[in-house]
């Protein structure tokens, strides 16, 4: 869209909305995702997150600097923001697509927010043991070769019993679950944490992550503890995306039905 207005700032902002930029950024994003996936197969997920998925700059062969995934995402975010302001058409027919683009803004923006604020820890307990000391698992720490960093949780968790069941006559696990007690000040309450059914406490969430047996009949259970105050962001974005796609589908369907009505069929 050529814009000859005498406002250089606005003109620049408009040019940021360019579709061609979108295509270029998307291609770069795709290449990075492929590179990161292949890299992950070789080096594991934490290395891939540190070097590619969570990186502003990638150093190819340790030297050549290339934009990392965070960088490209930021460019896409700016491009999308500019498009929302200057390029997208605000008409009812386009309402669905508009919502879809808004939801993408929220996905990328929310992703940034969560990447900056969310923390993940591991908490391993033997049966009968209670603790409020979790070990943080983070990209930054691994880079400093200091694999584990301790944090104090606001509540104490006591593992009462870990139970795993198998599908009968097979080695396929049917479920893992841990009966725990949540200890906060003088209060104690019981809860169950199982696969696909985490325990939420304020902005902490405890997930059944893994387990171990010591061969003497004793079991230990590992929970991943996530503190994520932006947890709801992707949910809002998902809802917007769904609404937008459904709305656009209806608009398109109506248009298609109109087109195929007898007498109006195009040659």
């Amino acid at each position: 869209m050529p814009d000859k207005k005498n406002q250089p700032v606005l003109g620049f902002a408009r040019s940021l909305a360019s579709l061609k930029l979108t295509v270029v950024f998307l291609i770069l994003l795709g290449l990075l995702v492929i590179a990161g996936t292949v890299y992950q197969a070789e080096n594991g997920i934490y290395a891939a997150q540190r070097e590619i998925f969570g990186a502003w700059i990638i150093r190819l062969f340790g030297i050549v600097p290339l934009p990392g995934l965070l960088f490209i995402s930021m460019l896409l975010f700016i491009n999308l923001l500019a498009a929302v302001f200057f390029r997208l058409q605000y008409r009812w027919r386009r309402a669905g697509l508009l919502l879809v683009h808004y939801s993408l803004l929220l996905f990328i923006g929310g992703g940034f927010f969560i990447a900056v604020t969310a923390q993940e820890y591991f908490l391993t307990l033997r049966e009968g043991e209670s603790s409020n000391v979790a070990i943080s698992v983070g990209a930054k720490e691994t880079r400093l070769d200091q694999n584990q960093k301790k944090v104090i949780l606001p509540i104490k968790i006591k593992l009462l019993d870990f139970e795993k069941t198998m599908h009968p006559g097979s080695g396929i696990p049917r479920s893992f679950s841990s009966r725990v007690e949540i200890i906060f000040a003088n209060t104690r309450r019981r809860a169950v944490i199982s696969m696909n059914r985490p325990l939420r406490y304020r902005d902490y969430t405890f997930y059944q992550s893994s387990y171990a047996e010591d061969g003497l009949g004793g079991e230990s259970s590992t929970f991943s503890v996530v503190r994520n105050s932006g947890r709801w962001l992707p949910y809002i974005a998902s809802a917007l995306l769904f609404l937008g796609l459904a709305g656009h589908f209806l608009v398109m369907l109506a248009a298609a039905l109109k087109k195929t009505r007898p007498g109006k069929v195009r040659p």
Binding site: G36, T37, F53, P198, Y207, S224, P234
Partner: peptide
């Protein structure tokens, strides 16, 4: 997010 604690984790299938 409901079962593993993260909405997106750059798992190969997600990628």
């Amino acid at each position: 997010d409901q079962s593993w604690g993260r909405f997106w984790g750059w798992d190969p299938k997600e990628n």
